[in-house]
Computed example of a mutant assay.
Amino acid sequence: MAKNAMVFRPEEENVAYIGAGVTLKGEISASDLIIVDGAIEGDVSARVIQVGQAGVIRGSVTATEADVSGWISDHVEIKELLVVRATGRVEGKVTYGEIELEKGAVIVGDLTALEEDGAAKPASAAKASAERVEVLGALPKPSSIERINEAVRSAKGGKGGLYLAADGEEKRVTTRALIGRKSSAGA
């Protein structure tokens, strides 16, 4: 659940619950919490929105925080924290303050991060236009430059020459010239 999310209690005011098997068409708004285990087709707004594994929202979603284990599509604007769980899927135009993705979470569409003052960050820094992002949980394999940098760091204290060869190549390239240079890759 989102860090400040509330737990649903039927006796509480300003809380809405859409149960499994229920489909709501239209606009729904609550000042505190909306929990969706069913389906909503339309605009949804609340301080906190929680979408269960079977929950679906198709429409414009506006909230301060959202915790998604189900599916949201179309236009999503989360001012502070968007959490997408392992079973969650968010599609469409997505604007968020902070984002947290679990292994297996899927986000498809235009992503825009908000600055702390609520303004959108420049597109070049925050937009992943029409890209599919899947969080697989495993760390990526080191890139060639990272492997070279690691070899160079190891060679600095060692004696003798260090040679690297690309896969399938018999040509050996000395890395002595690389020692002491900084990589532009930021490693």
Rank of each mutant, 00 (worst) to 15 (best):
I18D: 01
E146A: 00
V135Q: 10
K141E: 15
G158C: 10
G157A: 10
V44M: 11
K79V: 06
H75R: 12
L178M: 10
I34L: 09
I34C: 00
K171L: 04
V106Y: 13
A46C: 09
S154K: 07
G55R: 02
P122I: 10
S124E: 14
T87Y: 00
V15W: 09
M6G: 01
E65K: 00
A126N: 14
S129A: 10
S45L: 10
E131K: 15
E80P: 07
S60L: 15
E80N: 05
E116R: 09
T175D: 04
A120V: 10
S144P: 13
A119W: 14
D43M: 14
A128V: 05
A113M: 04
L101I: 02
N4I: 08
A123H: 04
I148V: 08
A166Y: 11
G109E: 14
K3W: 11
S144K: 08
G38A: 04
A119I: 06
V7D: 04
A39M: 11
R58N: 05
A166L: 08
R147E: 08
V56D: 09
G70Q: 04
E116M: 07
S29V: 12
Y17R: 09
P140Y: 03
Y96G: 09
D167M: 11
A16D: 07
V36Y: 04
G186C: 04
